[in-house]
Simulated scan of single mutants.
Amino acid sequence: MSEDRVHVQVGANGVATVSMVRADKHNALDQAMFEALMRAAEQLAGDASVRAVVLHGEGKSFCSGLDVASLMGGSGGTNVLLTRADGRVANFAQRVTYDWSLVPAPVIAAIHGNCFGGGLQIALGADIRIAAPDAKLSIMEIKWGLVPDMGITQTLPRLVPIDVAKELTFTGRVLSGSEASTLGLVTRVADDPLAAATALAEEIAQKSPDAVRAAKRLYNETWVSDDAAAALALESDLQRGLIGKPNQLAAVTAGMSGEPPVFVDPATPA
């Protein structure tokens, strides 16, 4: 069943498109959808040809959140969401957001329609979010007497001040894509977020994949860190690993000649 929930397509240009395909349920998250999203992230993390990823939902919405009725009726009920496999940092539910950080290539979420609760947390797990101006977003868990628990502690603090995070979490109010952009919850708005996300992914795919992967790692590991020495050391270590390598030289050659660069895929996922 889970193979029917998410489709992954990798183009010749290195842009991968991940589509949630449960349109009749506004891409609500049942166990099969969780499993399919985890498998998609794992597949892309291991594919060195992938240079950028576009994540979106088919139909009228990006993702409307948990399909509580389905999860309650499944084996283990909603408790399955809180289970954590041995050795994993994230539990079952958290992996559909956290695992996007394990994909070396940038992940761009294209948001339209409803993006509620767990759906918003999935989008927050992406590196960049482009939303339709009239998209509807909400940290909705308070409506059900719950806290957001799908990795939001690793994403929201990088985007908005704590008072904004608290206001949105305490109230669960619904934001438009335009207001979400003003607050910093999404990167920018576009009338056609999927087209805009794809165009951005194609632009990124034309840059050195080594440098792009290193930049994602640099920011992911240091953005909210208070360890200046470790952050500065990582800058140097990553730079040392780029200088003089084939893709760095190809970027220099292209910059000097004006010709399109020719990059090679990383030998192994970074």
Rank of each mutant, 00 (worst) to 15 (best):
M72E: 13
G113A: 01
L82N: 13
N91G: 06
P104Y: 00
D67S: 11
Y98C: 03
A93H: 09
G113T: 00
D86A: 15
G117T: 07
P104M: 00
C63I: 05
L66Y: 03
V68H: 05
Y98T: 01
G77H: 00
V103P: 15
L82H: 13
L82P: 05
D67G: 12
G65P: 02
I108Y: 13
P106S: 08
A105N: 07
I108E: 13
A110L: 01
S64E: 06
N114Y: 15
F92Y: 14
D67E: 13
S101Q: 10
S70I: 15
F62Y: 02
G87I: 05
V107C: 11
R84H: 08
N114P: 13
A93R: 05
N91M: 08
V53A: 11
H56G: 04
S64Q: 06
L55Y: 01
T78F: 09
H56F: 08
G76E: 00
H56M: 05
W100E: 11
L71W: 02
A85T: 06
V103N: 12
G77R: 00
A109T: 04
G73D: 01
C115L: 03
T97W: 07
S101M: 11
R88C: 14
V107A: 11
L71D: 02
G73N: 01
R95N: 14
F92W: 13
S61A: 07
T78A: 09
A85F: 12
L66W: 02
T97M: 14
G87P: 10
S64Y: 03
G113M: 02
G77A: 02
L55D: 01
T78V: 09
A109V: 04
L71M: 04
F92V: 14
F62N: 00
G87V: 05
G117K: 06
V96N: 05
L55G: 02
C63D: 10
G76K: 00
G57D: 07
C115I: 02
G74D: 02
S101T: 10
F62S: 00
V103A: 15
A109Q: 05
N114R: 15
T83E: 09
P106N: 09
T78K: 14
M72N: 13
G57M: 12
D99P: 02
V103L: 14
R84I: 14
H112R: 10
G117C: 11
A109S: 09
L81M: 14
A93M: 06
I108L: 13
P104E: 00
G65T: 08
R88V: 10
P106K: 10
L102D: 13
V89I: 12
G74H: 04
S101D: 09
C115P: 01
F92K: 08
A110N: 04
K60H: 08
C115H: 02
Q94V: 05
Y98F: 10
T83H: 10
N114L: 14
G74Y: 05
S61V: 01
V54Q: 12
K60T: 07
V68L: 04
N79R: 12
C115T: 01
W100Y: 12
F116D: 03
N91H: 09
N114F: 14
P104G: 00
C63F: 10
F92Q: 11
I111T: 06
V80A: 03
L102I: 07
S75E: 09
F116G: 03
A109M: 08
V80P: 00
S61G: 03
S70M: 13
